[in-house]
Design a protein around this nucleic acid. Structure first.
Lengths: 354, 354
DNA sequence: AGTGCCATCGTTAGCGTTCACAGCCAGGTC
DNA sequence: GACCTGGCTGTGAACGCTAACGATGGCACT
């Protein structure tokens, strides 16, 4: 054997021509075998496959991408990827993309600013992604996105439906409504709300659902408190609520606090803790409900009533949307632009009076 | 102007030649401008940049990769990316990679099997990654990895140090030791342990640290219970422990249960809940400690003593390791193969007797 | 004035693949 | 036997970029 790749110093990856030579065919035939073209005799196909095996040949993706003009790569821009929701979405999304034959590259934003978003997208398009999914549910993000006019399709997750950008989202408003109605049905006069930070579309939609449910029931609508999704901010809001609960209606600071709908489970944890510390028992004196149904929620003390979102489905749907846009090419269906997924209320002990 | 791209139907992305023509230079000069080559006159550089701007030109990454033989892409294989730890690592890793000028593509494993791991790696190498980080802290995963003999460098995260694969990890054994010593110092005769699932290196290292601390203190070493990282499995283990606590030493089922070291925070939540339900108060009757310091831990009831791992640092270190291996090329330093990061004990109410 | 150097720029040749096209040979039809 | 058809295979030309080298002209130094 004259093959002593070690001796040559630089061992170069085998190319299609190498395989062709070894199999005694042309490089084009090798290409045909690789792309499962039918018109190849079985015997030569076998020969080629053997050569591929022996050389450990792998198709060069760059060369392929160059000529086909397809990188088969999708980009994702995500914002708080350590949170359960975004992480789960990313997970489902990646799996779906892989099934469709795409690779996904993610860029994470430490904190959302229009500039950071643009840089992230820039970074991705520098590598030739064919499309991107943006999981930055911020009002300004979607607005910035609409401005950008990118040369590839974009799909948002929880990006709201006010702008003409295709996207998928959970019906957050319905979620807020479900929780609120559940609490009202349990006999509470009204329901307080600890909201997510301003500008976050999910936060706003949950507020809207909560308000709508209260109005429809003719209940008083208290001023919502505002957190930033973290347990700590929930804790602070909980302290505030505990103060009001103690004061009652006396000082005219809104209705009595007997039920709280918190915009996510982490903050609900903080709220519960603060209420407890203030001597208020949950759920006996104050009912607390969250949103997301993180794995821990079931084991909180007490187990947390919450709204479950099918994050995996969201991820899958976003990929379907993006891929359909990619494959369609010229054909602009333009109809399946919005996917809305229904959330589900999960009732647990935190809202059930003993 | 004869430029009517709309009229041609297919608007093709502008190429370097287009820019060159518009700027009145050769494509090579455009290339030089793009790669910040010094020997370009300022005036022509400006001209080229203007043409680039006007045409909205972007370098074709595939063509570039083809000729430079560098895709500037790194792959990651992760296992439970919805968990706080892996998600945080991924996050830090991506950021570090971006700073180094790389794009990272992640593939997630729903569940670890050697086959799934191999497929994931296959998928990545199909796209021409230059190296990969494997965040699958399973004994069999690292073993399978060592077998594979891949044509690009691999770095493990929490992959243990028994095999000759470079990797970075937190000193889990030290973590287990710190918790155990803390509990012993608080006056507990011994410490029980709820471990992670078998085969997981982190679980094993934490067991080792726990055992070592007990032995050194001359304390009895109970049989560890085994969970699977989920709150539910912790709950089950907690029920088991509660049963033993009630039985005391009577039935000879091991030492008294007054302190439990749980291998992660989620399971610790389940354990605490089960103990509470059984009428045992935490920490008055049983002290509970966890591992990871997830954001919720501080707000558990009671706030959880735990071990904080700097996941972001882990991610960064893994990228440094990988990139150094990539840039080094022929130079085999071979020394900086292992990075160990020290964890930190965070003491909270769950282990402090009132 | 001749020489050399250096900054600046253009020309050419690949990188490894797919696509379009053209050949070839067997088998069927008239 | 001439012709066509269709399965199978090879040849050449892109794809858009960078690397290597060559050409040019201005400047300083001999």
């Amino acid at each position: 054997m004259s093959q002593t790749p070690e001796s040559t110093g630089v061992r170069r990856a085998p190319t299609m021509a190498d395989v062709a030579q070894r199999a005694g065919v042309s490089h084009q035939t090798v290409s045909r075998v690789l792309s499962h073209h039918p018109n190849v005799r079985d015997s030569t196909r076998a020969e080629v496959l053997r050569a591929i095996e022996e050389l450990g040949y792998r198709r060069n993706s760059s060369a392929r991408a160059l000529v086909t003009r397809r990188t088969l790569t999708l980009g994702v821009v995500a914002c708080n990827p350590t949170l359960f929701g975004p992480a789960s979405t990313l997970f489902g999304l990646e799996e779906a993309a892989r099934d469709e034959g795409y690779l996904v590259s993610a860029v994470t934003l430490r904190q959302f600013t229009p500039k950071a978003l643009e840089e992230a997208i820039d970074h991705l398009s520098e590598w030739g992604v064919e499309g991107i999914v943006v999981i930055v549910p911020h009002r300004a993000a979607v607005a910035a996105l609409a401005e950008l006019r990118l040369p590839f399709p974009v799909v948002t997750v929880e990006g709201g439906h006010s702008l003409p950008i295709p996207g998928v989202s959970v019906d957050q408003e319905l979620g807020g409504r479900l929780v609120t109605e559940h609490l009202l049905a349990a006999g509470h006069r009204t329901v307080w709300h600890v909201a997510g930070p301003g500008g976050w579309l999910e936060a706003e939609a949950r507020i809207a659902g909560w308000q709508a449910a209260l109005r429809e029931a003719g209940a008083e609508v208290p001023e919502p408190l505002v957190g930033d999704w973290t347990p700590l901010s929930g804790y602070r809001a909980g302290q505030e609520l505990a103060g009001r609960a103690a004061a009652g209606r006396v000082r005219g600071r809104g209705p009595e606090v007997t039920a709280v709908f918190v915009a996510n489970d982490q903050m609900a944890l903080g709220v519960t803790r603060a209420l407890r510390e203030a001597g208020l028992s949950v759920p006996a004196q104050v009912a607390v409900a969250g949103f997301d149904d993180i794995p821990e929620a079931e084991f909180f003390a007490p187990p947390l009533t919450t709204v479950r979102q099918d994050f995996a489905a969201v991820g899958q749907a976003s990929i379907r949307l993006l891929v359909s846009r990619l494959e369609a090419a010229t054909v602009q269906t333009g109809d399946d632009e919005r996917v809305v997924i229904e959330p589900r209320l999960i009732v647990r002990a935190s809202t059930i009076r003993p």
